[in-house]
Design a protein around this nucleic acid. Structure first.
Lengths: 221, 221
DNA sequence: TTTTGTATAATTGTATACACGAATACTCAA
DNA sequence: TTGAGTATTCGTGTATACAATTATACAAAA
């Protein structure tokens, strides 16, 4: 899936429109005309069409035959729902990781945490972007470690979806520290092969992220 | 999403190839050439391309740029994993339905159950296809009743995914009866606004489906 | 025999052309 | 002015044409 996106034009158009929807450039019920989009991006209708069809599958666009494509939009409630779903599935993921994780992946998780902790220790102040990237890496490794193609695929999709909400939420130093501590606890539980604990911790980890979002005034309605 | 699939050619090609992959006509690592597929289906490359790009997003096809599209395939483990995930999310769905369901949807659920029960009472033997369709309808209504676009979308996708596994599994009369009883219990819990009970019952309902699959020799490895 | 280079064929990627359907604007009668 | 009916316009749906890339076949050199 990733392969195709990288070099091909159609793939880039897809990602671009997707970003523009998630960022709010195109708002709900906006009509997405193939010609217009193509001219804006300097490509023909063909790759645009492919992108729109894919976006429909993702639920970001609604296509009415012979009529047009319209932005479905993504509400605060949608994002909130995804977090709830994610909290359950991240728990499941951690549980499965206990059984399937490799030594190499354990090392990778350790490394991600160490790098995060290093960032937070910097006296010059931590690099928020870097910390966010490392957070993403930690979770991504965990997804792969679940040994389930389906679950991994799903969680990565979600992660992409809420990327924008995350970008908008300021990473408070306090939350960042707590988050890393929680990562470490999860890793510990997985090392100890304690499935129940791993599940519970991963579950709560997402719930804490949600609490933080709410504290920052995120609208879940 | 459904709208587009119904009338357009590209949508039908998408569903057709999807079916063929899930049914095993195209096996893992098979190359899907746009021209060949187009000729087989009597259409040009354009709708085939759109379909392949969509299938990639679903994880059924892997596209390597400038090389081709290959069937990713779906293993027994994939299906099993989906059932596990589904069991959690169906629980969540039932929980949310308790809060969001409308009177009309309650009636629709009741109707689906009544029709199922009617099928099972027929002395001439029940129509398995009909019962399966009604089962699907029951769940679909419940998905909508969750009030969550995201969850509903997700569960419908899953339902499609495992459709084939279900088709292959014989619907034993015993299991069918139990299944309908479980549906009725779920509906009862939702009517009673008992979220915990609804969640637990919906959860277990899927677990029972899984047990039945296993009993029929389904390979989850 | 193996390897490497090159020409050729096959396949994908993108753009364009044409067909079809839907929406809009217009005409003309009441 | 209003309304029905028709013409025109606009956008999508599909097919085809062309460009770019990759795979294949074959020949020449090591």
């Amino acid at each position: 899936m990733e392969e195709y996106q990288e070099h091909s034009l159609g793939g880039r158009v897809f990602q671009r429109i997707r970003e523009d929807i998630l960022n709010g450039k195109y708002k709900e019920h906006d009509e997405l005309r193939e010609n217009t989009l193509g001219k804006e991006l300097g490509v023909s209708r063909t790759p645009v069409r492919e992108a729109l069809r894919q976006l429909e599958l993702e639920g970001l666009v609604t296509i009415i035959p012979n009529r047009g494509a319209y932005v479905t939009g993504i509400t605060g409630k949608d994002i909130w729902d995804i977090y709830v779903i994610r909290s359950m599935l991240e728990g499941l993921c951690a549980r499965w990781a206990v059984e399937h994780i490799t030594d190499e992946q354990l090392d990778e998780l350790e490394e991600a945490i160490l790098l995060s902790e290093f960032q937070m220790k910097k006296t010059s102040g931590f690099n928020a972007e870097q910390v966010t990237e490392l957070d993403g890496r930690f979770h991504s490794i965990l997804y792969d470690a679940s040994g389930s193609r389906m679950l991994s695929h799903l969680l990565k999709d979600f992660h992409n979806y809420v990327k924008v909400a995350r970008k908008n939420s300021v990473v408070s130093e306090e939350r960042a520290r707590k988050s890393i501590r929680e990562h470490r606890q999860i890793l510990r539980a997985i090392r100890d092969r304690d499935a129940d604990m791993a599940e519970q911790l991963a579950n709560e980890h997402i719930l804490h992220v949600m609490q933080n979002l709410k504290k920052q005034g995120f609208e879940a309605k």
